[in-house]
Design a protein around this nucleic acid. Structure first.
Lengths: 355, 355
DNA sequence: GTTAGCACTCTCACCAGTTGAGTGCCAACC
DNA sequence: GGTTGGCACTCAACTGGTGAGAGTGCTAAC
């Protein structure tokens, strides 16, 4: 089907300029771009015939393709990849937009939970693609505070605050003759707080071993402590807790998703949390901005979309990811610039918390 | 355009049976149903010509329509409405499914936050439409517990537990020479707990007035207390906190949404939280299961879909809503039966918490 | 009131012809 | 040798026409 591809080597400047022109034109218009249009709209100083021969060459290199003989050229995933790697310089976000975004972040409640949602919303509205964001999550969670609140005679609510600010809640049902009133719960919570605060799951488990079984309160504390350890372990084990997304409609409005089956594919792509989680994990590991283009994504329903993802936070302490998801035909330069700015902003905000 | 409609009066039994047959047939097949098909598939004991005259009559009454001359009949929104009001008896969920659902709820963490999500997921998978659920929210929130945790020298985290189990978190930035260390925060929290626990926002505000300004700890408590009051007031003011949805893909796969613009409309309908919130509020107020069919919904993008919503919880204490959203061509009998069962189940679970 | 028969209407699928955009190739040119 | 104008070729997209099929509405007979 595809012609034999030469390995993509260094490209002479004129070819690069034309590749760039094709991509820019196609990104805005969404229709295959022909040699004539390129000559007219980009002052290339050569005739359409010359452009045609270069287009043919770029196609030979696998950077462009055309849907049918009488159609113009469109970039391949490899074309976008080459463009992102070698040609594009990330366009920094205009100063006015930077200011507006900073202002928005200033408006919002001073809490990381709001921030990462706002990051997704902001990315969506600026790039006109779908914005993604995950909360910052630590490698090994540390317990910061434990609270027990009586609900009725047989149930209590366990509230567990972790160091980076996330809160876990669980219901404790009391067994047999276990103590039940709020004062007893307070005593148990006090025991747990003195022993477990600032500990990881592993260390917390060890600290529980010394609790006595023959004392009512200590036995209760021990049981609740075991539950806490399980909760923290589970939290540590999940790579990504939650991927928040916004502006999915932006993506769905792209003309390439006019057929409803494609549209559905995109939608299920957006819902494919497991793969998103996987990507997000790898980005958090790599520690720098990353771009995943079309077929570079394994899942079938993801092969029509691209992602630009960047980590934020403090390596070793808490890491989250922000980014955008759009059609492969997206403005990578703008997306990269915007994602870079927002992740930088999130860095500042996290720094505030840990300073 | 539409023929003159007679007011929908009582319908003779045979007409009802035929209306029912048209709806059942159309709900499963999604193609307009003709007189012949009705005679063949439903033992009506009359000829297709007779059925045709009754169909014409039903159309005169505004209960049916046909897309074009040579097409079969499809129900109008009014037809569905009449069906739901007068003809359908809610099909109770099969015992096996009831058991399976109960089992699933038993598996999950014993916490209302998980339950309402599970309710949406369950409704989606059983009805093959989109499942919706909101957490149970009290009319006037009562404070159950207040906690202050130091983050660094200038910031503390406020954790506020409300009576029905929801948790609010906020960052407190300390001012000027305010006390800062954990012991001081503990004292402030203790003051707040003794004064504000079991209080509503209004009563809490009054209780704060007696705090002295010239005492470091009490001044801190007062400031934090004011913040707490604001948070609770804001929580009371929002009618619906969150509408969780699942199984949107089910709806998108319906053949009536094959054109991508319709599909997008449905999607933005699903994202239209403000209207959903409004509906949910009215359902919570009405206190019984309610059905909203097609054009009965004001927003344009909602006019192709129907909702079946039921409240759950304890009137006067905490009320939430569960339900489904599907194409107007949905099985109302099954939807109503399923929603009824799930809301009943949620009632039981809430009762457990308040017993 | 019900039924069989029949003319009528309208959608849908299929087909052929036409248009136009864009390509690939080639001979001529600088 | 790279560049250019010219030209034949290809193919999607549109157009109009035709026939089949489904389902209706009407009417006359039962």
């Amino acid at each position: 089907m595809a012609r034999r591809r030469r390995p993509v080597g260094p490209l002479d400047l004129r070819s690069q300029a034309i590749l760039r022109a094709v991509i820019e034109e196609y990104v805005t218009s969404a229709i295959p771009v022909g040699s004539q249009a390129l000559v007219e709209r980009y002052g290339l100083g050569v005739s359409s015939a010359t452009v045609r021969s270069i287009l043919a060459e770029l196609e030979m290199n696998g950077l462009l393709t055309h849907p049918h003989t009488s159609a113009g050229r469109i970039p391949t995933d490899a074309g976008y990849r080459f463009f992102v790697e070698s040609i594009v310089e990330a366009v920094p976000l205009p100063a006015i937009e930077q200011l507006m975004i900073r202002h928005q972040f200033g408006q919002v409640e001073f809490a990381s939970e709001h921030w990462f949602r706002l990051a997704a919303t902001t990315l969506a509205s600026v790039t006109r693609a779908a914005g993604l964001a995950t909360p910052a999550k630590p490698r090994d969670a540390h317990i910061r505070r434990i609270d027990l609140v009586a609900i009725n005679e047989r149930m209590a609510s366990l509230i567990l605050v972790l160091r980076e600010g996330s809160i876990k809640q669980a219901l404790i049902t009391l067994e047999g003759d276990e103590a039940i009133d709020q004062p007893t719960l307070n005593k148990a919570a006090a025991i747990l707080n003195t022993r477990l605060v600032d500990q990881t799951a592993q260390r917390a488990a060890a600290r529980l071993a010394t609790l006595r079984d023959d004392d009512r309160v200590e036995a209760l504390a021990r049981r609740v402590g075991a539950r806490i350890v399980r909760i923290v372990q589970e939290y540590d084990a999940t790579a990504i807790e939650e991927v928040f997304s916004d502006g999915l409609l932006n993506v769905m409005e792209a003309p390439e998703f006019a057929q409803s089956d494609k549209l559905r594919r995109v939608f299920s792509a957006l819902e494919n949390r497991s793969y998103l989680g996987e990507l997000v994990g790898s980005v958090a590991g790599a520690g720098r901005i990353q771009v995943f283009i079309g077929h570079e994504n394994q899942p079938l329903e993801m092969q029509d979309v691209s992602l630009v993802l960047a980590p934020y936070g403090r390596p070793g302490r808490a890491i989250g990811v922000v980014g955008v998801l759009g059609p492969t035909r997206m403005s990578y330069s703008q997306a990269i610039g915007t994602v870079r700015f927002v992740s930088g902003l999130m860095n500042e905000l996290v720094d505030h918390l840990y300073a």
